[in-house]
């Protein structure tokens, strides 16, 4: 009975492979090492954010405030350096803010028991507002001389591999290590799988939930620094964009169920690759942005529908509040 089942992860892999083969065959210039690197580089920030989201989703929550964590603390780094502070102290301040933000998120969700969707929605708005009102003078925080050298984080390359890809890979390894090899990783899975059981077993569920959101905020902040370094500015308006939806798609599409306790780094990589291949292929085809979105949406929908047909859910196995 088991072996006939194909998981969503495998479906996404099949779709990705098919797309990749299709693009390689029919698109001139797709299957070149330069383009593949460009493909990866274009989605590396998305991938890093996906890892942050994955930690939270595996732990049974969701973090809508990730984009605020991406935009505000790194923006502050640029702003502080612009105002004459040293780069290192600015980075320390930024990470301190990210950690504090994660703590607040975690507290709201674990202790005040506000549903994660709502808590992070509101806290994200709060952080974005804070940045907009008090931290930045203009929404696009520009690079300044004090940042010299820091742009290597986004623009350098090692052995021809652009830095963001290396950073994505490093984050993947770090997160995979955390989730698979450490006690806290095991706890995160346990909490996401069955929070009540984890509690009864004696796992400190609330601190673990707080930890998830702190990790997410810190990784989000890191992604923001990479983003800022690669475009030489921090467009904090990115908070208004629909980037968070792409992040959720990467995670969920990769096969990490929103119900928690399932999936891992592999799923994020898969989701990221699928999105990356699609976007890159369509950019090569010179499709307009709107058309790209349309195609992206339809392919995603097809993948999700395929999953439903292969792994049908019926009234017997349906979960309560299964959104």
């Amino acid at each position: 009975m088991k072996r006939f089942r194909i998981t969503q992860q495998e479906i996404v892999f099949v779709v990705f492979a098919a797309l990749f083969v299709f693009c390689s065959l029919f698109l001139k210039g797709f299957l070149t090492s330069a383009n593949i690197l460009a493909l990866l580089q274009n989605v590396s920030v998305l991938g890093i954010l996906g890892l942050a989201m994955a930690i939270v989703v595996i732990g049974g929550g969701i973090d809508i405030s990730l984009i605020a964590a991406l935009a505000v603390p790194p923006g502050l780094v640029l702003q502080m350096v612009q105002d004459g502070h040293s780069l290192s102290s600015s980075i320390v301040v930024a990470f301190a803010i990210a950690i504090a933000f994660g703590l607040v998120n975690g507290w709201l969700i674990a202790y005040a028991e506000v549903p994660s969707l709502f808590a992070t929605l509101a806290s994200g708005i709060f952080l974005a507002g804070l940045g907009q009102a008090f931290l930045f003078r203009v929404e696009v925080v520009q690079w300044s001389d004090g940042m010299a050298g820091f742009d290597r984080l986004g623009q350098a390359s090692v052995f021809g591999v652009p830095m963001p890809i290396i950073l994505l890979a490093a984050t993947c390894l770090a997160v995979a290590f955390l989730l698979r090899r450490t006690r806290w990783g095991a706890y995160i899975y346990a909490v996401g799988d069955n929070r009540a059981a984890a509690r009864v077993t004696g796992i400190p569920t609330r601190p673990i939930i707080v930890l998830q959101y702190v990790l997410a905020a810190v990784i989000g902040c890191f992604a923001g620094l990479v983003l800022a370094a690669s475009v030489n500015s921090m467009p904090t308006r990115i908070f208004n964009s629909t980037l968070i939806y792409d992040v959720i798609l990467v995670v969920v599409l990769g096969g990490i169920g929103l119900s928690g306790g399932r999936g891992g780094v592999v799923n994020v990589i898969l989701g990221t690759l699928l999105i990356g291949t699609m976007l890159n292929g369509m950019t090569i085809m010179n499709l307009s942005y709107a058309a790209q979105n349309l195609v992206k949406g339809v392919v995603l929908l097809a993948a999700v529908i395929a999953d439903t047909f292969i792994n049908p859910r019926n009234e017997e196995t349906a979960q309560q509040g299964d959104i």
Partner: peptide, 17 residues
């Protein structure tokens, strides 16, 4: 979409090709 990151991504691909 007035977005620096997206502009970078598009330009990267174009320049690679």
């Amino acid at each position: 979409d007035w977005d620096a990151a997206k502009a970078k991504g598009i330009t990267q691909t174009v320049l690679k090709q």
